[in-house]
Design a protein around this nucleic acid. Structure first.
Ligand SMILES: [Mn+2]
Ligand SMILES: [Mn+2]
Ligand SMILES: [Zn+2]
Ligand SMILES: [Zn+2]
Lengths: 135, 135
DNA sequence: GCAGTATTTAGAACTGTTCTAAACTCCTTG
DNA sequence: CAAGGAGTTTAGAACAGTTCTAAATACTGC
């Protein structure tokens, strides 16, 4: 029976997180469809309107834990608000201002050549490309 | 007499901003040396310790006005804090985590090929490349 | 100099996020 | 199939960064 909470229970356990009612509900919203970009506030609204009340603090806790567990990645594109991205693979973003909408694009067709070497004493961690667009 | 506040007075006036004592002091700190990346808080500390007390609200006002006038550009790389960049030309950034240090690199040696077309109904505004590195 | 508008300022307000500590729940063990 | 205990949730307080308010002050054009 696909789409069941059993999947998420196992997935959370594998990530070292107890599959609580709240985390399973959030994981289902986040992971059962296609890739998503949410903010804490938007996910909180969503989980509340799905007859599944979860406190805002728990939404923040879960997003941070999911990110730390590698289930989500955090995207910083605008001041004062973090996006969480269910697509943890290599990819980049369009950011539509002023809406705040994020759209993925695959990084494998994009070639970035000529990047200088990291500053002395540092190792490369990630390259983010943010293509800002306007209506 | 180079390095005088006269330069900044003229530059502010040209940007449509009255050259007040506070704005001239901030402009001097920002623009008289090489390119810089500051936060409101860091600039506030700096201007205070230069026997030139300016309120934090004024630092925020000035940074936003300088940015709106095209004298600065705002860089968003970390949640909860904005950087302001005196280098308004085309360039990209190394971001050293967890220090929060920003380093410029020129964009003219970097080639980004294969970027997809902007989403329907949007125009390209800017492409930001952030190379995140760790110690 | 004066008038009038722009600017500055301290402090309040606001937003997004984290913290606190008490209540609750999952899970292991007996 | 209890407890018991560690992990989790929660409301609300606290916090950090930023913006707002409205009264005082400083530029500027006359
Ligand atoms: Mn965080
Ligand atoms: Mn701003
Ligand atoms: Zn994404
Ligand atoms: Zn820069």
């Amino acid at each position: 029976m696909p789409g069941t909470s059993l999947d998420f229970t196992a997935r959370l356990r594998a990530a070292g997180l107890r599959p609580t009612r709240q985390r399973v509900a959030l994981a289902r919203l986040l992971f059962e469809g296609g890739h998503r970009h949410v903010t804490a506030e938007s996910l909180h609204v969503e989980v509340k309107s799905a007859q599944m009340p979860v406190s805002l603090a728990t939404v923040y806790n879960a997003l941070n834990q999911f990110r730390d567990a590698g289930l989500l990645r955090e995207v910083v594109v605008a001041p004062g608000r973090s996006y969480f991205d269910t697509n943890t693979g290599h990819h980049h973003h369009f950011f539509v201002e002023p809406d705040g909408a994020l759209h993925d694009f695959p990084s494998d067709k994009v070639t970035i050549a000529g990047l200088p070497a990291p500053p002395k004493g540092t190792r490369l961690s990630r390259v983010d490309v943010i293509v800002r667009v306007r209506r």
